[in-house]
Structures are given as C-alpha cells and as structure tokens.
Design a protein around this nucleic acid. Structure first.
Lengths: 227, 227
DNA sequence: GTCTATATCGGGATAGAC
DNA sequence: GTCTATCCCGATATAGAC
C-alpha cells in the first residue's frame, strides 16, 4: 500500500497535513517525512510548495468538476430543455458533493474538507486558482438555478446559494468541527444520514419565504414557490 | 484618530491583516509596520504572536459573548420559564450576531469575519482557546434549542445548528467571498437586508422536515413541527 | 530519481541603550 | 515605553554526488 511512487505518496501526505494544520503551517519537512521521501523531492517533482498545492488541487478537482457537470447534464437531459425544479439543482450539486465525499478514500475526504475551507481561504494565489478551476461549474449552476427560480430576484438566489455553500463547508468538516459545540462526542455519521439531514436542511432554506423587501407581489404573497 | 496608544494600534492593525492574510501568513513585521509601531512592541505588550492573537480575541469576545447571553436572557425572561419557540432562539443568536456585525466599526467587522473562519481554523492553540471562551454560550444555547424542539432528536438539532453556523460564517464573509460565484460584483448589502435574507433562510432550514430515519412517528409524520 | 549538504532568506524573539 | 541591532531558528530552495 505504501508502494506508490514518490509523487503520489507526497500528494497523499500533503493532503492529510494541509488539512490538519493549514497551508502555511505545514512545512515541506513535515510532508516529506510523512511521505518517507526526501526533502528535495518536493522541489524536484512539483517545483516548490505552490506547485505542490496546485498539483494537489488539480489531481482531485478535475474529477470533482466532472462529477458536478455530469450530474447537472443528467437532470437537464431528463428535463428535456424545461427548467429544472429547484430541488433537482440542489441534489445535483450538494448531493453529488456529499456523496462524493462518502465514496472517496481517506485522502479524498481530506481533500474535500480542505476544499470547504478554501472558499474563504484568504491566500490570493489559491483564490485565483480556485476561481479559474470552478468557472464553468459556477456558470452552469447559476444559470440552472436562475431558470429554476424565475420569480426570485437573482441576487436573493445567489445569497442563498452562498449560505448553502457555507453550510456545506461545515457539513463536510463534519463531526470534528461540530464537537466544538460540546464535549459529548458526536460520531461522524454514516454518509447516507449526513446526506439526508443536510439535503433536508437545504431544501428548507431554499424554500423559505423571501424577506418582504425582496418578495415580488404574487397571488400567494410571501411564498417563494420553490422545490 | 491614529492617536490611540500603541497596543490599540497594534490590535487594530493585526485584526485587519489577520483577516486579509490569515494568521500564519501575517508577520509581526507587517503588523508593526502597519501600526506604525516598533517590531519589539508586540513582544513587549503581548508577550509574542500567540499572546497578540489571544488579546485580539479577548478584546472583542467578552463583549460579544455578553451580547449573546443578554439576548437569550431577554427572551427567556419574557417567556417566563416556558420553552422558547425555535425562531426566538435563532433570532437571539444569529440575529444578534448579524446585527452586531452591522453596528461594529470597521475593526469589529474584520473581527467578526475572522471569527467565522476560526471555527474551522485548524490551529490547535486557537481551537482550544475558542472552545474555552465559548463554553458558556454554547451550553446555554444548546439547552434552549433542545427545550424549544423537544420532539427532535438532539443529534439532529446539533447538526442543524452546525449547518447554520457554516451559513453564518459565509454570511459574515459577505460579498467578498460571494463574488467568487461570479464576476458581476454583488455589493455588500445593507445590514437590514442581510439580516432579513439570512434569517428567513435559517428559519426555512430549521423548519424543514427531518429526514425519515430521524423523524419520530407522530400524527403528522415527516414534519418537525418547529418555528 | 534520489540523496546529502548547504545556501539564502525571513520569521519570532531578545538585549540593552535611550 | 520605545528603539536599534542582533540572535537563533526553521523555512524553501538548490547544487552536485550517487
């Protein structure tokens, strides 16, 4: 099992350590020690620490993006050009995410948690990279959501999506973070349970009536008419 | 206005810079330069970088905790010993938070955004500190929520609270982070609007039906009966 | 491709004059 | 309380033998 080649071992170790300590606090020495590789190997294979981080994201992100787009393609194909229903969009995005986390090997789970924190990561270098990698996914899902919620102001839809991303970040961080809430060790639930409780929470949030100032007058005032 | 004493200027500068670059990436040299103070001043006044971070949190957190507890005291007093309604608990906690962010000076806003990210901050030192500072607030609000939702399994309530904290983190991060979602610069809305749209989202999430496996059999199956 | 050894830099911290 | 100068460490990165 540790018979992977050096770059792979380094990437695996880096994922785990970046997750545990953050990017800045994780040193190449820690990574190469954990990976049972030589200190110089990082520079040889990845050209430096930033190159390593970029490779780390690239290794996982291409596939994850493909999952997201495939999920959206699938429901859109089934809808045959008609606007999706909001819960379909949520399921395609967040359901895919949660399910993907569950399927992943340990390294993959570490990566997903890393990803959740990265959205707010202040490092300019990382943010630029992320924005570039995500551009297509963001564009497609925004469009799908706007079509699915034609009556809701675009601004309100974006804010709710934003809130949901925050919730997703914590959902992925899982029980570790949750235990800040109390000493009673909540176990990391099985993935199905997390998926179910997270999706029902999201549906509720998206279905919620818009605040008065944003709600358009309709026959049923103060209902978004969502999922 | 820059006629504050040195420790205050250092704290202000540190808040801004930690927010912008994270804890690790922000150096004492950056901080003291920005604060127009001497490099040695940080060690003199705070005993080191960790001491500075701790002082930073202490300066704001005591007051914030007091706000949270006062808000809860107020509704609990009004309820006269009866269980609160769920939306009252949410309003006390999240409403207070959002409103506090709005009232704050610029430094306060930086701090609140810092706080949002700190919940998932991997640094052991910071997490230990936060857990200690928050203990009382967490205990009180958990108890209030459990009382307000007697039919919902405690585990489910905690998970939803966890999700909400994630959403709050992103809500506080505001439009800066949101703009990763697209080039169309969404302006940071006025605080009232943010409060309204965030609270309605949260209500929706908390009111959502529990997932089947967690819902207790009642006469109206699959409804949490919340807010 | 992998190692040892080392260069170079920038971090936090401190001593001691003022 | 504030400054200058400096220490010491550990970081990334590289040179060059194997």
């Amino acid at each position: 099992m540790s018979e992977l080649d050096t770059p792979e071992r380094i990437l695996d170790a880096a994922e785990r350590l970046f997750m545990a300590h953050g990017f800045e606090a994780t040193t190449l020495r820690m990574i190469t020690t954990e990976a049972k590789a030589n200190l110089a190997a990082v520079n040889y294979h990845f050209g430096g620490k930033e190159g390593l981080i970029e490779a780390l994201f690239r290794r996982r992100l291409g596939w994850l993006n493909a999952q997201w787009l495939a999920a959206l393609d699938k429901v859109e194909a089934e809808a045959g050009g008609q606007p999706l229903r909001p819960h379909q969009v949520l399921e395609a995005f967040f359901g895919t995410t949660i399910r993907t986390v569950a399927q992943c090997d340990e390294g993959g789970r570490h990566f997903m948690r890393l990803l959740g924190r990265t959205y707010t990561e202040p490092s300019a270098f990382i943010r630029r990279f992320m924005a570039r990698e995500y551009a297509e996914v963001v564009r497609r899902y925004k469009a799908a959501l706007f079509r699915a919620l034609p009556d809701a102001p675009k601004e309100e839809v974006l804010w709710r999506f934003h809130f949901m991303l925050g919730a997703m970040s914590y959902a992925i961080s899982g029980a570790d973070a949750l235990n800040v809430l109390g000493e009673d060790g909540l176990h990391d639930a099985d993935p199905e349970a997390l998926h179910a409780r997270f999706m029902s929470f999201l549906f509720g949030g998206l279905r919620a009536p818009l605040p008065e100032f944003a709600a358009k007058p309709t026959k049923k005032p103060r209902r978004t008419q969502a999922a």
